[in-house]
Design a protein around this nucleic acid. Sequence first.
DNA 1: ATAATGTATGTCAAATAACTACAAAAAGGC
DNA 2: GCCTTTTTGTAGTTATTTGACATACATTAT
Lengths: 286, 286
Amino acid sequence: MNDNRGNLLEEIRQRLETLNKSERKVATVIMRDPNSAIRLTITALAQEAGVSEPTVNRFCRGFDERGYPDFKLRLAQSLAGGMPYVTRNVEFDDSTEEYTDKIFSSTIAAIDSARKTLRPPVITRAVDYLSQAKQIFFFGMGASGPVALDAQHKFFRLNIPVMAYEDALMQRMVAAGAHTGDVIVIISYTGRTRELVEIAGIGRESGATVIGITTEHSPLAKECTLLLSVPSQEDTDIYMPMTSRLIQLTMLDVLATGVTLRRGVDFQRYLKRIKDSLAPTRFANE
Amino acid sequence: MNDNRGNLLEEIRQRLETLNKSERKVATVIMRDPNSAIRLTITALAQEAGVSEPTVNRFCRGFDERGYPDFKLRLAQSLAGGMPYVTRNVEFDDSTEEYTDKIFSSTIAAIDSARKTLRPPVITRAVDYLSQAKQIFFFGMGASGPVALDAQHKFFRLNIPVMAYEDALMQRMVAAGAHTGDVIVIISYTGRTRELVEIAGIGRESGATVIGITTEHSPLAKECTLLLSVPSQEDTDIYMPMTSRLIQLTMLDVLATGVTLRRGVDFQRYLKRIKDSLAPTRFANE
DNA sequence: ATAATGTATGTCAAATAACTACAAAAAGGC
DNA sequence: GCCTTTTTGTAGTTATTTGACATACATTAT
């Protein structure tokens, strides 16, 4: 819906040869300092270019715009600083400002790229399973442990029996004792932890639905009923998992939201009640 | 020269609470469909919002703009790049694709806005404290509990004695028993949990350095030696904390990275050794 | 060479949009 | 409940854009 015709500035440059004398004057003025051009009125721009106002207007229409204001709007968009959410690695001589910015940028870039690889039908299926689950278990080890706990926290509010386990032995026992209708969500960045791969198999044998939040094509992914794939972040997480956790967490936010929506509008009142129950533990708001 | 003040849409959303009735109407109309809003005249927008034209004009000036046209220009720039980093709230009739996209977008927008409010000198000081700490404790309750655990995980790798506590009584005891040179990091979204505010005070009395990762001007913030402020996300987290955790986590990534850098280049070898220690627990990489 | 035609550009007026000053209404404090 | 302050709207003013039309210039045909 967004009329994202290419960069306007680029288009002007390309068509420069095609334009007639006066229109070329207008183009030149705009290209010389586009950032100022967007703040000029048609009168000012016309004067600047030494042409008449209607000429500017005609020039604008030549670029498939309704008139000068629309043209300016599109020009402004072309100029808007593209987002520099690039993944750059932290260097050992970075200043505080530099590494802070790099980490934030990489994080944003990672989440953005995760968003692009998402497949809504898969999420819908995951939400189907979760909202019909008799019980939900979240398994995560190491850095994914806290993610599992966070998920427990979130799903608990949804009035579903839910537990998180970080311990491999507990996970194994729970998986072995699971029933049809139970859902086990296994969170693992690498998808290669032997223990978890085995546990996934055990869970499935017990009849549980096993949802994996992990890397595509990994051994764990193959053992799961349903895979929510997290793109692997090549460079960033060399020595510590950073962005991967955040993507997993966001994914779980999406799932929790999906389940909430299935509950219907009335459920919001229940959520509010849970939230309000915390009020006495807090200082009043302002 | 390009006045790239932050994403305007985001700013509107943040300041939504601050606005008065009529101005909020205007904000709502703009946020509902920003892409159309930029094509409206002040008259049309006023009518759409059910307010008078001067109200719209005043609204624009409230955002440090000279008037409506300039406001529109900046709005257009915020929308550019086809990438709507707009925070739109999830509606009850959203499709999977819609709510997924909204959550990812809000998350990205929130982290981006957090990035902009960061003050590098404060981070430097936090890293100073942390890298010289005899011991580090991370305290978090409720949704911030998993964040504290994640931090423990991360700082453990940095070869620092570190513990995370979710339990208020343990926190209280640890705070009371802390010494000068110990650092207590308290993570709280609201900054209003009575228990934690008290604990912060106790920790400081014991001589520990108390770093708060919480909302500015909150009771907790006032009790801390150093405040790392997390911008509060009014709308998004109504019924569940979502973006706040992610910002806290990213903040902790930054701190952990800062401490790592202080350790010097050799330290990387140590980190690699820790990472490699996990290899036997995993299936080989391809 | 000149008339005829078409294109390019400008002038001016009408319409539209944005802003200002002021007045009315609503909200808040005493 | 009255006064003060804040919020919102009305009406008039100014600025901006656009459209209709006219003129100038170039091109081609006679």
